[in-house]
């Protein structure tokens, strides 16, 4: 464990806590893409299938449980909660995310570390996570003004993988056999997808203006 990876995990945790706060405090999920939440639930379920067979550390196991439980709770809340689901932007959240799932699965069958069930699921979760934010970014562009908590949620979610890239660089130089090129290339693509969001987020912070993504 290094400071970059710990900071990345904490940033990821903060993004989930900010999203939970937004939904709980405002009893609304307007501006949040349910499809992105469903994709992330799939990412965690596919990536953490080894949670019971592969014990890494208490920290690792607890964080896996927190990520799976919180994301499933958010999806359930957006689908099932009487009050929250009424504020879901159903007509705006129309990204065909099934294509993202199919493309990630095909790519995982072609490019993986080992042709085993677990490794293919792991590669699938890595590729899917890289594109999982797309429905959310499209929804932000369509929904005009973005409320603060939603903007902060997306910002922290994008920043966490950027910190992981620093972690991979650090591990590359400090560990002899370290090779994580699938996660690294995918992480670079994932972080690059946030580039324009980060730009407009920085502008809104600098000009102390409301965050607005151009349509």
């Amino acid at each position: 464990m290094n400071i970059f990876r710990f900071a990345g995990d904490m940033t990821h945790l903060i993004s989930i806590l900010v999203l939970l706060l937004k939904i709980y405090a405002t009893k609304s999920c307007s501006g949040i893409s349910r499809k992105t939440q469903e994709l992330y639930a799939l990412v965690f379920l596919a990536r953490y299938v080894d949670i019971f067979t592969e014990f890494i550390s208490v920290y690792n196991t607890i964080m896996k449980i927190v990520f799976i439980a919180s994301t499933l709770a958010i999806v359930w809340c957006m689908r099932g909660h009487r009050v929250v689901r009424r504020s879901y932007d159903k007509e705006l959240d129309t990204f065909r995310h099934y294509f993202l799932i199919a493309a990630s699965l095909v790519l995982a069958l072609l490019v993986h570390e080992k042709f085993t069930f677990q490794e293919i699921l792991w590669a699938f979760s890595i590729y899917l996570e890289a594109v999982a934010i797309l429905p959310q970014l499209v929804l932000l562009q369509r929904s005009g003004n973005v409320d603060n908590l939603t903007g902060q949620y997306v910002f922290f979610l994008g920043a966490y993988r950027g910190l992981y890239i620093l972690n991979w660089i650090y591990r590359y130089f400090t560990e002899p056999h370290f090779s994580r090129w699938i996660a690294c290339v995918s992480g670079l693509v994932q972080t690059a997808l946030y580039a324009d969001f980060f730009y407009y987020y920085f502008l809104s912070w600098k000009n102390n203006a409301k965050l607005k993504l151009p349509a």
Binding site: E54, I56, W122, Y164, N167, E175, H177, R180, A183
Partner: peptide, 10 residues
Amino acid sequence: RWRSNRHDEL
């Protein structure tokens, strides 16, 4: 070598 590929990250 295999151990270094163990998925120890979240």
